[in-house]
């Protein structure tokens, strides 16, 4: 949280001059679940990027690769995993219904408390 400013120090009329400064605000600590890469290889279709409500899919625009998750802001909604076509393919191949944290997926959704157990962190 930024330090509270006095009335002489802020622009008039409630204007915010620093466009997009909400990046400084951490919404990652809302997260109960975390998206992580699983075993299935990402095909860089950017469906997760396109559908993320929190602009939290990190992409390398030069290499045209999806490179990870912006955990400072990701709220853990799991939409990235739900729209991932690789996930869909893995699920289709599997005989039983897969859990969201199944290791064979491309994007896994793991409870924050179970990350260590799953070998992350």
């Amino acid at each position: 949280m930024s330090e509270l400013k006095g009335w002489k120090e802020i622009p008039i009329g409630g204007m915010i001059l620093d466009a997009g400064n909400s990046v400084e605000y951490d919404t990652g600590d809302w997260r109960a679940f975390r998206p992580v890469f699983g075993e299935a290889e990402c095909i860089n279709c950017f469906q997760c990027w396109l559908n993320c409500p929190d602009s939290s899919i990190l992409v390398d625009t030069e290499k045209e690769e999806m490179v990870g998750f912006d955990l400072k802001h990701c709220k853990g909604c799991g939409i990235c995993a739900s729209v991932c076509p690789v996930n869909a393919k893995v699920k289709k191949k599997a005989e039983d219904e897969l859990e969201k944290d199944e290791a064979s997926l491309c994007i896994r959704i793991i409870e924050e408390g179970k990350l260590q157990e799953a070998g992350y962190e």
Partner: peptide, 10 residues
């Protein structure tokens, strides 16, 4: 409540 009052003071 952290900034409304400052804007009114302006």
């Amino acid at each position: 409540y952290d900034y409304y009052y400052e804007h009114k003071r302006q």
